[in-house]
Design a protein around this nucleic acid. Structure first.
Lengths: 417, 417
DNA sequence: CGACTAGATATAGAGTGCGTATCTATTCGT
DNA sequence: ACGAATAGATACGCACTCTATATCTAGTCG
């Protein structure tokens, strides 16, 4: 089969139609030729010709004509095709600042293997204790290898991989300069680390990947949502701006950075709520103004966790409840400001706060609801848990494969069972 | 010539290539078949076939083989084609709140006719004195008719028109609800007013159109700029967000609305700088703390203009200079906040302030420059003057025609000279 | 067991673009 | 003034794609 396709030639048309057909096959578990005829407007002869090609290329497989039990039809049984989901694999890596994970998935997004590693090395307050660039590179590579080993698939079948990092990423996969070098540390040349691991390698901001992951979740939760923001809140705050069905990136990938919060009244800091919670609690304890017997006062100011502060609030501690309220007001203010400037339907909050401080999110949502502003965005906690970034990374890698499947042709032939 | 083109048929391929060819012809004053061969990768036979079709459809015209004087070549003279720029016209309308204008242009954007009308009817401070919806509809329609009459072209040759209004516009051409109904007043169903005036009618936010108009200006001013913000500053502030070469619109077209400035420290208001200048000056005069002989003190607080305040500052009035500094700091803060969240290269300020208060923009640019922040955006005054929105409207209408030229086929046949 | 149904296959035809060879209209050199 | 050189135009044959129509096939239903 010749494959020297010139742009705009008849062969180009064939490729265009093949893309169209493959796209539909990707959306459904099983397709018949008639399905594809209806979907593409092509003739049966053409559709079947294309399906034959795609089978030969390894993207589709023809199923036996075992009629599906449920919907029973008369007439000659249809020829059925399905995406050969084991034809290739993708990998998503979440290279977070205190935890890395990798997920291997097949072409349908089914998870085939996973691995995780924690990086116990300080906090943003003391970045000198963070793992250095070389260590981070090594850890990212090894968590990738572990996930691959866990899946049992051959490394050569990986067609695309995406790495999520907590720093802005420009078009070349690099991060812009940062005063303390934090962004360079979070993205220590990860594109180069993985270039040989797959034909398509991408590094992307973690909040952007979370936004991608929330797309299906957001769409599933009711009407179609074109514009929303995915916020990752923990030690810091990052936002993935999905506006008009597109990620907003900006010149250096820095769109969604939150440093401007320094200037927002009632927020005044781009620090994450976890960090702020600890700071406020420590101050309160050290100030010595807490009532005797307050659960908050019993904590060590230099060694408390945000969860302990929330527990104190839950057990009726007035000062801790005040901290919760303060944090909720900040979060609500952030949502209102972003929602107003970008006109989004909803803000979805993910990251550590969803597990350590769910009360803050609920309270912030209530504050927004009570504001009476009809254009204020809906504030929702993410339902994706700690794997949001990893899931988004897998989805991003998958979409890369879907876009370029037919360009990558023969690679898909590798694992012929 | 049959024109029942089914998607994905060979005819579809022909149409695709024709689009490609027409697109190149649009970018250059004159093209030869060889130019098009190089640009499209098609064969001479194919290119000429397509050009013949496009000539028949009225989009191109073949020029005599008069060789262009300058670049002298040997060999058989090339067959030369050019866009038939009089084949159709577009109209851009700027339906501003105190002024409306309309511009008629040919397919190359050359202005063929213009008209303008001022609406002397109050300010945002006293919206009750603004012209009512019916009046605005009538004025918009009449300024359109006047521009058309000025151009001398036939109304049936108008293929596309775009109307710019100072309110958010959603996908359906409507504006979201506004507490005082200001947006409904600014966009009193203008889409319906013009539906019969052209096959393609669009209503768009004025700042978005200004952003479109600044694209060529911004690109011309140096390196290519993908991400920038066009701010219209006068009685109010509106922004067109051009990020990653796309306009960011949001759910109801409200992206770029500035109400969030209420929460930004050092700004605290979404009012425009002209309005704020008058307010600050009035307060200063009424407070009675001005030095005797201050030019500012000589003004009537209820009837001064922002230009008078600037003149006072220029003539050495300390209080007026303080107002200028205050306004510049606000503008700088706005730019820094927007630049940080959206990671843009530059902010281009247009609107009334560019003529009445140029000193404020210059001072704000200096403040940003002195901030030492390497990622702060460059602040520039717009070079487009009062016709920025009208120019953007024309460019927007033109791009609609370019996108859909071949779908609109026979319409272009109207004025066969 | 035959009527009916839905899909598969085969063949002819129209449309498209490519490649090569040939023709045409200029300019340049002598 | 003439022919060589150059650049473009034209003509023919080929390969490929999709459509349309007619015919064949594999099932169910009465």
């Amino acid at each position: 089969m010749k494959r020297t396709v010139v742009a705009s030639s008849p062969q180009f048309l064939r490729a265009l139609n093949a893309r169209h057909v493959l796209e539909h096959a990707w959306d459904l578990p099983v397709v018949t030729a008639s399905d594809l005829m209806a979907a593409t407007g092509l003739t049966r002869a053409t559709v079947i010709g294309i399906c034959d090609d795609l089978v030969e290329l390894g993207w589709l497989e023809e199923l036996g004509n075992a009629r599906t039990g449920g919907d029973y039809r008369k007439g000659r049984p249809a020829r059925r095709y399905a995406l050969r989901d084991r034809a290739a694999a993708v990998v998503g890596v979440d290279a977070g600042y205190d935890r890395m994970s990798a997920t291997v998935a097949d072409l349908r997004g089914q998870v085939l293997g996973q691995a995780e590693v924690r990086i116990l090395a300080g906090t943003p307050e003391s970045p000198d204790r963070l793992a250095d660039a070389g260590t981070r590179r090594r850890l990212a590579r090894s968590v990738f290898d572990d996930a691959l080993a866990d899946s049992g698939i051959d490394a050569s079948t990986v067609l695309a991989m995406t790495v999520g990092v907590p720093s802005p990423i420009d078009a070349a996969g690099n991060s812009p300069p940062h005063p303390t070098g934090f962004w360079q540390l979070m993205n220590p040349g990860l594109l180069e680390v993985f270039t040989r691991c797959a034909p398509l390698v991408t590094v992307e901001n973690d909040a952007n990947l979370a936004a991608i992951a929330e797309r299906s979740a957001a769409g599933g939760g009711g009407r179609d949502v074109d514009s929303y923001i995915a916020m990752l809140v923990g030690e810091g705050i990052g936002a993935g701006l999905m506006i008009d069905r597109r990620l907003v990136r900006g010149r250096r990938g820095g769109a969604g950075e939150m440093r401007f919060l320094d200037y927002v009244d009632g927020v005044r800091s781009a620090n994450g709520l976890a960090l702020t919670a600890r700071q406020l609690a420590s101050e309160a304890i050290r100030s010595g103004t807490l009532k005797a017997g307050s659960p908050l006062a019993a904590l060590l100011p230099e060694n408390l966790t945000e969860r302990e502060v929330m527990d104190a609030a839950a057990s009726g501690d007035v000062a801790a409840a005040g901290i919760l309220e303060e944090l909720a007001e900040r979060l609500a203010r952030i949502c209102i400001v972003l929602g107003d400037l970008l006109d989004v339907d909803r803000v979805i909050v993910g990251g550590a706060v969803t597990t350590t401080m769910p009360g803050v999110i609920a309270r912030a949502a209530a504050i927004i609801g009570a504001s009476g502003d009809p254009t204020a965005p809906e504030l929702l906690p993410s339902a994706l848990g700690p794997e949001a970034v990893g899931t988004g990374a897998v989805e991003h890698a998958l979409s890369l494969v879907r876009e370029r499947a037919l360009d990558l042709g023969p690679l898909a032939m590798s694992p012929v069972a």
